[in-house]
Computed example of a mutant assay.
Amino acid sequence: MSSPVIVTAVFHPAPGAKERLIEAMGPGIAAVHAEPGCELYAIHDAEDGTITMIERWTSAEDLAAHAAGEAIALLNRDIDGLLASPVVVTRMSALPAGDAAKGVL
């Protein structure tokens, strides 16, 4: 069995476009939530002015299908022109520690 994959995607809104970016992400997020293997896909407002997506996928294969799928294409179309720079995507593997329920995402 493959291990879950954790991803962060950091979105840098164009000046004055933060609220429009958040709103534009809504339909794509809803579509991603319906994808196989999506365990977590949640946006967060970071103190530095960015929007950070925290994701958890059941497997690397599910993440690959997501990256090539229609939901991510929809998200990318909807946010076109609302970013100051490209999205920074980081893929991670869990390093469980401490309490089993609290030590992994």
Rank of each mutant, 00 (worst) to 15 (best):
K102T: 10
I79Q: 00
I29P: 08
N76H: 14
P13V: 15
I79T: 01
G49M: 05
A84H: 06
K102L: 15
T50P: 06
H44V: 12
H44T: 12
E47P: 09
A65C: 06
E23A: 13
I29C: 13
G98K: 03
E61N: 07
E55D: 03
E47N: 12
A46W: 09
I22G: 03
M1K: 10
P4S: 15
G69S: 15
P15W: 03
E39M: 15
R77Y: 11
R77D: 15
L63I: 09
A71I: 03
V7L: 02
W57H: 03
I29R: 15
E70Q: 13
T50N: 12
A34V: 01
S59M: 03
V5K: 08
M25Y: 06
A100G: 00
E61A: 14
T58K: 14
H66W: 03
W57M: 04
A100S: 08
Y41S: 00
T90G: 10
A31R: 11
P4H: 15
Y41Q: 00
D48A: 11
L40F: 09
H12F: 13
I54S: 02
A84N: 06
S2T: 12
T50M: 10
E55N: 04
R56A: 11
I79D: 00
A65S: 11
P27D: 07
I51R: 01
A9Y: 07
D48E: 12
S93L: 14
L83M: 02
L83H: 02
M53Q: 01
C38A: 15
T8K: 04
V32D: 01
V104R: 12
G98C: 04
L82C: 02
L21C: 00
G103D: 08
F11A: 04
R20G: 09
M1I: 11
V104M: 13
A9M: 05
M1V: 13
M92Q: 05
V104S: 13
W57K: 03
C38N: 14
A60I: 13
V88P: 02
V104N: 08
C38T: 13
V88T: 09
E70K: 12
G26S: 13
C38G: 09
I72C: 04
L105E: 09
R91S: 07
R20E: 15
T50E: 10
V32H: 03
D78T: 08
T58D: 08
A68C: 09
G16H: 02
D62L: 05
A64L: 08
I22M: 11
P15A: 07
A101Q: 14
I43Y: 08
A101H: 12
L74N: 05
A100R: 02
S2R: 11
M53F: 07
I54E: 01
A24T: 04
G16K: 02
A73E: 11
M53H: 01
A14S: 04
T58I: 08
I51Y: 04
L74F: 07
A94P: 08
V10A: 09
G69F: 15
A9V: 04
V89C: 02
V5W: 06
T90D: 11
